[in-house]
Design a protein around this nucleic acid. Structure first.
Lengths: 202, 202
DNA sequence: GTCTATAAAGTGATAGAC
DNA sequence: GTCTATCACTTTATAGAC
């Protein structure tokens, strides 16, 4: 819990994050982390209070950065469609730059959230939901998004599809985050069908 | 590993499945399962070889059923669009009927697959990929799906968006699996935008 | 089919020497 | 900042009585 050099701390956190992402938080032991760092497990406790502290620090750092980016996009005050495109692009960008952190958030948040110290994850989820519902509602009002869709459902589909891409996206691969975002927005906005169906009502 | 009554075995498996889904496979102990069943942990080993065996039996049972349904849909020989709609509907239907099993497959398959006894999960993934790529390719050939999309990417998006819905779908809620499937197909096929953009080429 | 009792190994974490 | 040494606890799994 000491401040230590700061860089060593960051180094250990990065190591822990990649192990958490790869093997899962519960399956990763403090010995695994220490081994990867070339030290013994007891030595880790000079830098961190507990295994939970490591996960907490990894997630808060990531989420603060991510929501800072979202705030900038919203502050730019663009159209609903441009805002949606920017938020989707920024999300894929974060998968590109912080794959381990996104993977941990995706896979472990649900379980970690049950611990009191991770209660802030609920706030972030609510913030995320408000962000998307705002964009979608504005777009429907402006007439650029279809009015016959369930906003809440659309929000969930967008959220899930974007983030779950961390499972297969390869930061070192030929397919860039920008290319994925473009393809994804193409599907989301215009669909995969060649012709629009006649509006089908029940 | 005895055959036992059969029904007691199924009862215990259903209990284990819901615990695995809720708390995660690694975090769920055999004591948790035994407690939920009202017996002691040692007694579980009269029915099953190991904790791994329980997970294996849960997943194989679920996947055999699911791919049986897919095979029936393909055998019906409908159009690419009808086939796509039927496969999506059947997938949401399976989330409705077997939420725990889907959740386990979603959350744990990646880690379980690294164990030799779960190698068949790789085969199922390949089978699933072939199924989707076939439907999408047929649809592009028939001119009903856009030709400018990356089939592999579209496959991943469909697969992920459909299955990840298990995280929020409530089998007892007001929103039925059919309604979710309909909304989802509306987005996937036609997009959320009110007007198609002029085809944007790079 | 369940319980008693327990083994064998692994877990997160600590205190103090270097 | 790391190591030595170790504690207290939990884990999966087993053997045999009932």
């Amino acid at each position: 819990m000491k401040t230590s050099t700061g860089s060593r701390r960051a180094e250990l956190l990065a190591l822990a994050a990649s192990l958490f992402a790869e093997r899962g938080y519960v399956s990763t032991t403090v010995r695994d982390i220490a081994d990867a760092a070339g030290i013994l497990s007891g030595s880790l406790y000079h830098h961190f209070d507990s295994k939970e502290s490591m996960a907490e620090e990894i997630l808060t750092g990531f989420l603060d950065e991510l929501f800072g980016t979202y705030a900038e996009i919203l502050a730019a005050g663009q159209s609903p469609r441009e805002t949606l495109e920017a938020v989707v692009a920024a999300s894929f960008e974060s998968i590109h730059r912080r794959p381990a952190e996104v993977a941990i958030y995706q896979s472990e948040a649900k379980h970690l959230m049950q611990l009191p110290r991770f209660a802030y994850l609920n706030d972030r989820n609510a913030e995320f939901r408000a962000l998307w519902n705002g964009i979608l509602t504005d777009g429907v009002t402006a007439g650029v998004f279809r009015a016959d869709l369930d906003i809440e459902l659309v929000y969930r589909f967008i959220r899930d599809t974007v983030w779950v891409a961390v499972r297969w996206y390869n930061p070192d691969g030929a397919l860039s985050a920008e290319a994925v975002a473009e393809q994804y927005l193409g599907i989301l906005l215009d669909g995969i069908a060649t012709k629009r169906r006649p509006a089908k009502r029940r």
